[in-house]
Structure formats: structure tokens, C-alpha cells
Amino acid sequence: MTFDLSILCKSTLEEEYSPICFGETFQPLLIGINDQTYLDWLLKAWGWTLSVSIIGLILALIIGISIGTLRTLPGKSLIGRSSLYFANCWVELFRNIPVLVQVFLWYHVIPLMLPFLKSVPSYLLVSFALAFFTSARIAEQVKAGIQSLPRGQHAAAMALGLSTYQSYRFVILPMALRIIIPPLTSEAMNIVKNSSVAFAVSVSELTMFAMQTQEETSRGIEMYLAVTVLYVITAFSVNRIMGIIERKTRIPGLLLSSPSGAH
């Protein structure tokens, strides 16, 4: 059993190896070879993983923050009560079905139920599945963050005459979102990891790459290693980026602690 990373520099079609390890990525520069090397393919796959994750995360944040906010509103009027009920149902529904099952639903079932989705590419369907699944978890964290604020904050905002919308927009959410940056970091990392289930519906992201190339070449270990390294790099970068965000939004004179525990 040998270990030979140069397999990455090999073309996927021919027997040649690229001297710079890249193939069609740098084709316009007329160096390397014309076909796709495994390295090119790997980077493309990484790109798909990142795209699916980022789209999913942005959608999840928008939906999750809205739903989480809805869950903290007082349910006084009929609209208030039904929004609260809707938000609770949303969270329970998307939390209790495994990601893979949700991906299958989005890929096999929902386009048949909603014909206008038939033309949507599969990577977007995976993004939607990830977004809806993660939005439920983000909603929980947003709710916890809002509820960890002193109750007087909302009262003070109301006493000044701010409307409920204004008090959430200018007082409550800015603080709550800062508080939940640590659990949001976990969620961002989770979306990257969960994007791996896209292999089940043939989206050419990293895990699919690993499975396919392991069969094609007989160098599964090298391929798996490369993919693992990329996942680790991505996770590390997500952590770093969130750390920068946390530092940029830090409030002078205030130490914040996250209300949630592990996971």
C-alpha cells in the first residue's frame, strides 16, 4: 500500500500528469495540460460545497432570525397568536426530520408538488433543504438570545415610545445577535458539514468527489485525505471569520456570554 499524492496532478481523461498540477483551471494561461486534472476537479467540488453552504447559510439566517423573533413576540392579537403558532410549528417540523430525508424530499417530492420548482438545479434544492433545516436551529438560538436580555430593555424601549418593530430593530436584535455569535458559528460549520449529504442527489461537491474518485483511481486514501483537509480548512476559516465578526461588533465596556451550553 503506497501513498502517492501526485495522483491529484493526473488528468482525469488521459494518462498524462500536469507539471503544475493544475489543468483547465489555468488553461487560459496556456500552462499545464488541457484536460481537467484531479486537482481541478477537487477545487471545483470545493467550490460547490462552499456555494451550497453559503447560499444555505444566508437563507437560513434570514428565515431563522425572522422565525426566532416571531417566537418571542407576545401573542396577544389573533395575528400575534397565529404567528407564534406558525413559528413554533416551523421549528418543530424542520428540527425533527433528518437532513438527508429533507434533501430527498426537496429533490424527489417537492418539485413534483410545486411544478415551478422543476427547473431549479439540484444544488439549489440542496441549499433550500439545508436552509430550512438550519433555520429551525438558528430560530432557537435567536429566541434564547432575545430571552437572555434583561426584560427592562424592551420596557425601556417601549417607554420611550418606540413601536414593537422599532424596539426589535434598534434595541433587542442588535444585542441578541451579538450574544449568539458563538452558537451561530457552530451552525455555520454545521451547514458546511451537512452539505456533504448532497452526494445522495448527485451534486458534485466534496463528498461526491471523494466517493467517485475513490472508485475511479485506486487511490482512495489520497483522495479522502485531500477532501478531509479541505473540510478542515473550511471549518477553520469559518471559525476565523466569525471571530473577526465578533471582534468587529464588540461593544466597548461590555462582556457578553452566550446563553446556550454545548453543541
Binding site: 460549520m189 458539514k193 451537512n194 452539505s195 456533504s196 449529504v197 452526494f199 463528498t207 471523494a210 466517493m211 475513490q214 479522502y224 477532501v227 478531509t228 473540510y231 478542515v232 471549518a235 477553520f236
Partner: peptide, 9 residues
């Protein structure tokens, strides 16, 4: 840091 699927594989 890595997906469960990768560990399984």
C-alpha cells in the same frame, strides 16, 4: 470539523 459521512466512508 469533518462531516459524519466522511468519517463513515
Amino acid at each position: 470539523s469533518i462531516p459524519l459521512v466522511m468519517v463513515i466512508l
